[in-house]
């Protein structure tokens, strides 16, 4: 048993021939909170889908708990996924089920626990995210932050050893953001799990991550502890961490000469 629960080895992947990842190497040690950061469209969500085995790499491999993900058959993948919990970007709560039933869903589908025990477990998970009182509500009755917390309770329903978060802070008010931030760290430590956070919110991510990978142009552009990265003099990291609008990542999408385009009436 290696100390890394997830390892990404020389991974390449692309949609329709265009390579999105070009030889990525990452390691996720047990018990840590590791962040993957990068601009929108840099393939962060795709990376999580590769770890979950929803898509197959073009080259290289992802190992979860020592097993190569894309070599597993359907049952093998399902076994691996039972060790993972994933929080989707918009929560992805089942809209036809109540908050209670959403959290109970993985337990009812994947275990033979009696209903009375499921009830206790669901209330316990909801209590952990502070929403035990909301268990009768429907997803449409929740605010964005609450929905995210319910989805988190559902993701940890079966005590996974890997919890993946896709943009957990996106579109939340500052208070909800702080709440989610604390939850990620405290749940990780309470469950003894490993957390993988995909995000572009530097402040919150740096607050809770033990280690951070930056992806840009399909490769790991920089890595290190938040402390190291804050001091980094790499131009890209500096631009990202300090939120400067122009730098190695240009403000302008590549375009023809502005003046000639204005003068030229044709499009």
């Amino acid at each position: 048993m290696t100390s890394n629960i997830v390892e990404i080895d020389n991974l390449s992947f692309g949609y329709k021939g265009r390579l999105l990842h070009k030889g990525i190497n990452m390691a996720f040690p047990r018990g840590k909170v590791v962040a993957i950061m990068g601009g929108s469209g840099s393939g962060k969500t795709t990376l999580l889908r590769l770890i979950g085995g929803q898509i197959k790499p073009t080259q290289g491999e992802v190992r979860v708990d020592g097993k190569v993900v894309h070599e597993q058959d359907r049952d093998g993948i399902f076994l691996l996924r039972r060790k993972m919990g994933m929080l989707f970007q918009h929560g992805a709560l089942f809209t036809d089920l109540s908050v209670f039933d959403n959290v109970a869903f993985p337990m009812r589908e994947l275990t033979d626990l009696p209903e009375s025990m499921i009830r206790d477990l669901v209330l316990m998970k909801l209590n952990a995210v502070g929403l035990r009182g909301a268990h009768t509500l429907m997803p449409t009755e929740l605010s964005g932050g609450m929905a995210r917390r319910v989805a988190l309770a559902r993701a940890i329903a079966l005590d996974p050893c890997i919890i993946m978060y896709d943009e957990p802070f996106a579109g939340l008010d500052p208070i909800s953001m702080g709440v989610i931030c604390d939850l990620i760290r405290s749940l990780n430590d309470a469950l003894g799990a490993t957390s993988i956070i995909v995000s572009h919110d530097v402040k919150e991510t740096f607050l809770i991550a033990d280690y951070v990978y930056f992806v840009a142009d399909g490769v790991v552009a920089a890595e290190g502890t938040p402390h190291d990265l804050m001091q980094s003099t790499l131009p890209f990291v500096h631009q990202f961490v300090h939120g400067e609008k122009d730098g190695p990542v240009p403000f302008h999408y590549p375009a023809a000469n502005y003046q000639s385009e204005l003068l030229n009436q044709q499009l």
């Binding site: 996924r81 809209t95 994947l110």
Partner: peptide, 25 residues
Amino acid sequence: AEIGLMKTTEQLSAMEMMAVNPIAR
């Protein structure tokens, strides 16, 4: 419409990631 919306809002993906087969469920 219901299944299309479940797909759009990633509910089917979420199910798959929970090791639940959306075709069966």
